[in-house]
Structure formats: C-alpha cells, structure tokens
Design a protein around this nucleic acid. Structure first.
Lengths: 188, 188
DNA sequence: CAACTACTTGAACGATTGTTCCACAAGTTT
DNA sequence: AAACTTGTGGAACAATCGTTCAAGTAGTTG
C-alpha cells in the first residue's frame, strides 16, 4: 500500500533541509550550496539536486520548515501562561544559547522580503499569535510583537547579548504598561 | 600639497561603495560580486579589487557607510521634534518608497551579527538615540527602539506594507502610553 | 517475472567567481 | 627631468558553482 521508497525519500529530504539549516547557522545563507549541504547531510551532491531542483527550492523549504517550528515555539509560550518572565526567558535563550539559530531565522526572514510567495510563511507566527491571544488592545499587542522582533535582532548585534533579567522589565512594560516589573523577584 | 590622485581615489572608492549598495538593494547581498559592483559603478573589475582587497572589505565599507547615513536620518527625526506622527511618517516611507533600501540595511545589519567588529557600527544609531534623547524612562525607551526595528522588519514581509496612518497609533502607544493617539487628527 | 517507479550516484559541462599579475598612464616630489 | 607614488585595466588562474546526464540499484505493482 504505502510506498516504502517514498517514505525513506521524505526522510532524506527532511535530513537535507535540516543540514541546510545547520549550514546557515554556521556560515549564513551565503554558505549554502548544493555541495556544502550535501556534505553536511552526509549524502552525495546529487541527492540535494534530486530533491530540490534548484538551490532556491532548498532555501524555500528551509524557510518553511523553520517557520513551522517557530509557530510551535510560540504556541508553547502562549500555552505556558505567557507571563513576562516566561517570555523574557525565551528571548534570552534565543540570543544566547540559540543565537546561531536565531541568526539563521532572521536571514531566512529577510529572504521572504524578496520573495512575495514566502511572506505568508514568514509572518505566520505573527498571525497565529494574534489569533490565539485575542488581545483586548490590538495596538498594544502589535507594539509588543514588533518589540519582540526588535529585541531579538538588537540582541544579536549587542556586544554581549542581554540576559533574562535585563529583558524582563522591557517585556513587562510592553505587556503590563509602565514599569510594574515583578516586584517579588526584586531584591530590596 | 594635497594629492589630487588620492582625492579622486577617495571619490572613486565611494562611488564603488554606493554602487555596491545599489546592487544590494536590487539583488541582495548575494548579488554582490566584484564584477557586478564594478559593472554597476561603470568601472573595470580591477577597480573594485584595487580599493577593496577582499569582497568582505567592500561589504564592510558598505555597512559602515549605511550606518553613517542611518545615524543622520535618526538625528534629523529627533531634531524635528520626534513626535509620533513624524516618526510614523518616517517608518512608512522606510517600508514603502524606501523599501529596497531598508531591506538592504537589514541584510547588512545581520552581517554584523556574524562579524563582531561590525557590531558597534550597526547599532550606533541605537546608542546615539539614547544619547541625544536622554529618556526619562529608559525601559520604555528601549521598548520603543526595539519596536521600531520590529515594525520595519515586519513591514518588509507584510503583503501590503503599512502606511503612516496605520503606524501612528502604535508609535503613539509606545511613546505616550496607552492609546491616547493624537485626537486632533482623528475624524469624529 | 516483467514492467514500472523511485531513488542513487559519479562524472562532467559551461559559467562565474575572487583574486593575482603586470605593463602602463598619470600625478607628485625632489 | 628623474624618481616616486598612485591609480588603471586587460588578461588570466585555479576554484567553485548549479545543474545535467546517464547508467544503475532497489523497491512496488500487475
């Protein structure tokens, strides 16, 4: 019934996409070639060209894959309460432990700026966030979402990336309004 | 006294940098080669390699040049009052008329994420903004600056980029606090 | 087992790349 | 004018690139 060949094919295709993402994390989009990705995935070059007719197709598939994972992360945060500290922790991880990944995400993000057909995928996490949060104040929510992007991108070019404690007051301000940052965690 | 050769050399060097920026606006960083930039500038390929020993040097020079102009723009806005409508107008222009330029700026921005020595230049407009604004509420100001980046980058991947009127309430919220958006411009 | 489909892979093609080299022109200094 | 510095630019190099091709393997279907 099911074609075992196609199943393994899908798996290999995905392995190649994941290898492409690792290459982008390490060297940026500029480092993505059929050969470099294939080497990273441990497959012959022609495996990459077989599954992705053009290099562009591979980058597009990578963006779609990253966008999907990004949505999952976002939903997880919303589900876990979405309080400022939780969000600050996520942002801090993004610009520290997951720095390379975040950098890769933004490079792919900008790729969508030049490919209209990719825009929907790139901003899907934004649309999803609005959808699941049903914010009382849409303007404030838009400002918050914009600030998330800004905090990340600015965190990437900081000399030393901000940590959870530095980000938390800013997140709090954006969510709760003027400076009522979690007094219970503040030493007197 | 002054060396006329060096003077013309400086001028040519700058022309090449400006050509590089135009190439990035049109095709992205990926489109930058010594040959494409030289063609854009109307000079032989070796002119580009003469002034910029490596392609990287050319990209670095372009980032530094863009960062400088960005600071000037920022100072102009602050000087012109820095009210929400003024800022919203600037942001709207950035993602519409100047879309290509803004896209180029962010691609170069991310380049700094991979070159520690470029970080300072890339975020100079941020440091300058803090310096000249001396904000009463540093946390709110950080949030505002982050949102500016976010609004721009999200504007670049929107199906239809936001206009001045759509951005103004968000900017107002970030500056003045909860939804007191310029009532004098609102039709009843 | 035969026909078919899906995947595999090394070899190769032409194109483009960054960069170097070198002979030379032009401007400056002594 | 001789010595120098600075800029110019055509030609060429090896390297790498995306992509194609064709011959082959291995599963699936009838």
């Amino acid at each position: 019934m099911i074609d075992g060949r196609k199943a393994r094919g899908e798996k290999k295709r995905r392995a190649i996409v994941e290898a492409a993402l690792r290459v982008i994390e390490r060297e940026g989009i500029a480092g993505v070639t059929h050969r470099s990705v294939a080497r990273e995935a441990g497959v012959p070059t022609t495996a990459s060209t077989y599954y992705f007719a053009t290099l562009d197709d591979l980058l597009i598939a990578t963006l779609l894959w990253v966008a999907e994972e990004l949505c999952e992360d976002m939903l997880k945060i919303v589900a876990s309460g979405g309080n400022p500290r939780e969000i600050a922790r996520f942002l801090a991880r993004a610009v520290n432990e997951n720095r390379a990944r975040t950098l890769a995400e933004y490079e792919l993000y900008l790729l969508a700026g030049r490919r209209p057909e990719l825009k929907a995928a790139a901003r899907r996490w934004l649309d999803l966030a609005v959808e699941v949060s049903r914010p009382a104040d849409p303007v404030a929510f838009r400002a918050f979402l914009a600030a998330v992007d800004g905090l990340l991108i600015q965190g990437l070019i900081a000399d030393v990336a901000p940590n959870e404690d530095e980000l938390e007051p800013i997140v709090s301000f954006l969510i709760c309004g003027r400076d009522d940052s979690t007094p219970e965690t503040r030493e007197q």
